[in-house]
Amino acid sequence: MKRLELRDLRKSFGALEVLAGISLHVAAGEFVSILGPSGAGKSTLFQLLTGAIRGEGEMRFDGAPLDGARFAFMPQRDALMPWRRIIDNATLGLEVQGMKRSEARERVAPLFAEFGLAGFERAWPAELSGGMRQRAALLRTVVQQRDMLLLDEPFGALDALTRAAMQRWLETIWRSHRWTALLITHDVREAVLLSDRIYVLSERPARIVREVAVPLPRPRTESHELAREAAAIEADILDTLLGRPVPINEHPMENRND
């Protein structure tokens, strides 16, 4: 069942054409990624979805034109409020929805363990490491209990090792919650590890150049067998993004290092 459906979405900033007709859909319980180079217009697409800006084209949710409060949005940087303790950052969305702070805290508190934040409820964001901040931001996102998650490069600012750990962690908790999610990333491996389907974007002006299904079973981090299959999909997508590498035998003069 399709939940989100976009048809021929377009957006220009003055003379700068950013989105040149984006059509995609996300089904219930599906994890979909949008993979594209930096500056392609990925964040702009999310701004259209959250209503921060307006563009042309059709946006439908459950068959009806999109109305405001469908998405829980996680912006590109964690956007934690430095003046709120972690628990109060986590309750922010619920407070905006009109819930009392004490009630919101009760709702949020049990999730801290699962998000690897137990014991840090009363810490300030400045006291947390980068990975923990991202988990706190994700916690703030999922507790809003909207129909769908929009995650904009959630791990983009982390170092490679932390990012790998966070991707595995997200895959693990996603399996137990099955949120309907749309993830923006420029990390091919991240997209393959987490997604059921991937839309590959061109450079700006962005259009969808390819749709890739990722039929690998979950969990995807358990066996090296799966890792090899994932690597094949990854290489295939990279070819789409960068063009196929020129075979070695067409360059007889080139030295081989291996």
């Binding site: 959250t50 209503g51 998405f71 949005f73 590109q76 956007a79 922010l92 969305g93 905006v96 929805q97």
Partner: peptide, 11 residues
């Protein structure tokens, strides 16, 4: 980003 986040939350 914080302003946009709040706006997306419906503030």
């Amino acid at each position: 980003e914080i302003s946009q986040l709040l706006a997306a939350m419906g503030a």
